[in-house]
């Protein structure tokens, strides 16, 4: 049996969702019997292969031009796209920024932080620019499976992956569906 190829990436996120993924503990051995884990931010391979994967997982919201690119590339290179975690599904805590003036937020972050001396807002052409608003993944590319949670529990992640392996679209309910 050929293994299912999975790639993951993170956008504007705290890495908590990926930690929760690792929290499936020894079940990862079982998973690896059926799954070939391709690129992830926590392994050496960073980009999904050009020939594509079966399942792509994105965590985090889309807050700048680089993340927009990453999200689009993942969408192009996977068959089923999972938005994992509140930030990816709804925008999550990153969207707090949307309730502030962007310049004010940048100033607060780069200039006015208590530990900063002579700070500057970075505006090089070579780095990503913040978007007007922080967006959920499905505001940027179509998403097939939404898995909310801040982070989603290891059990919920396990449930979604095993349902997909069994050829079913996961339907979240009970303890698997949480927004916090």
């Amino acid at each position: 049996m050929t293994k299912i190829k999975v790639a993951t990436d993170w956008l504007e996120a705290c890495a908590g969702c990926h930690m929760s993924f690792l929290d499936i503990d020894d079940r990862i051995l079982e998973l690896l019997k059926h799954v070939e884990l391709h690129s992830t931010p926590i392994t050496d391979l960073k980009h999904p292969p050009e020939e594509g994967v079966d399942v792509g997982i994105l965590t985090g919201a889309v807050g700048n031009t680089h993340q927009l690119e990453v999200a689009r590339r993942m969408r192009e290179r996977c068959k089923i796209l999972i938005a994992m975690g509140d930030c990816a599904t709804f925008g999550g805590i990153c969207t707090m920024l949307n309730f502030f003036d962007k310049e004010e937020a940048l100033r607060r972050g780069y200039v006015e932080t208590e530990s900063t001396v002579e700070g500057r807002i970075p505006r090089s052409e070579e780095i990503a620019r913040p978007l007007e608003k922080v967006l959920a993944v499905d505001e940027v590319v179509p998403v097939d499976v939404h898995l909310p949670g801040c982070p989603p529990s290891a059990d919920a992640i396990w449930f979604v992956l095993t349902e997909l392996l069994a050829g079913r679209m996961p339907v979240l309910a009970g303890d698997n569906l949480k927004y916090d």
Binding site: T89, F90, T95, N98, A136, V143, H146
Partner: peptide, 12 residues
């Protein structure tokens, strides 16, 4: 089973 928000998110 609300897992997605099909309408625009609030920004104000």
């Amino acid at each position: 089973g609300l897992t997605e928000w099909p309408y625009p998110r609030p920004v104000e």
